[in-house]
Amino acid sequence: MGAYILRRILFMIPSLIIISMISFMIIQLPPGDYLTSQIAKLASSGESIDSAQVAALRSRYGLDEPMIVQYWKWISNIVFAGDFGLSFEWNRPVSTMIWERMGLTFAVSFITLLFVWAVSLPIGIYSAVRQYSMGDYLFTFIGFIGLAVPNFLLALVLMYFSFAFLGQSVGGLFSPEYIEAPWSWAKVHDFIGHLWIPVIVIGTSSMAALIRVMRANLLDELNKPYVVTARAKGLPEWQLLLGYPVRVALNPFVSTVGWILPSLVSGAVIVSVVLSLPTTGPMLLQSLLSQDMYLAGSIILLLSVLTVVGTLISDILLAWLDPRVRYQ
């Protein structure tokens, strides 16, 4: 098991390097270098810039040097000093702005993941065991709706209904009085009260997909000879189900976290824009629209890295569940 974990961590390193390169590429994409355009912007608003300060910034980001050097300066600052560069729009270091939002993004995504699992697992088992029952058809139908309705549209519809019929506006993760307040039990409680709407909105499509996965897997397993063996041993039906086919069907289910987590993080980004959640979503959109590229690049980098790490954790979980994975 230890060797397996070590191997997986080693495999992750090239991934992280490529992710950082992609993020750096995104920073570089807008035409012209950001400092020049920033200076132009400041100049147009009538502010003067100290030329010594400009020179210092140019050398700090290596703007006059080859691309690879620029990349190295950027990534080494992040890795060794936790310095993500400067947000030109806010004129503050990126690192001071993103951590809280990043934390909330992952809190929301992770809680959604747990919710999705907790709901789709029993429904998937039910649908497979009672194949073609009314309940199965109902869940299949809901599953298709979940698959077809883009999550931001679901958020919009939810907002519309609660505003038009309940006279309430939904959105945000905190009541106004807690937004600036430090963390406390009351704030956590308030947070949980606001959480359920984004969790349902972000989770629905993944839930639909997972129910389908679990149902199909379990249906496959239910026809395997070992189920007959277990039945011939005289096991009670529920003990048989949970002990044998469900445990086997759980493996492909757990391995779906490899794409569920990225899609939840993706979903969280866009849904937070609609529901104006204080997560990275709105900040990323804003920074991209104003071409505040260090901020945008850092958010993309961190979201990707944390997703890859999350996937790694799920893989380890899988190996612990299924002995066959460890021996491969």
């Binding site: 992609i22 995104i26 990225p262 993080v265 979903g267 980004v269 993309i300 979201l303 890859v308 996937t311």
Partner: peptide
């Protein structure tokens, strides 16, 4: 394994 929406954005 990369979340697609931020990348696309």
């Amino acid at each position: 394994s990369i979340p697609t929406i931020p990348l696309w954005m």
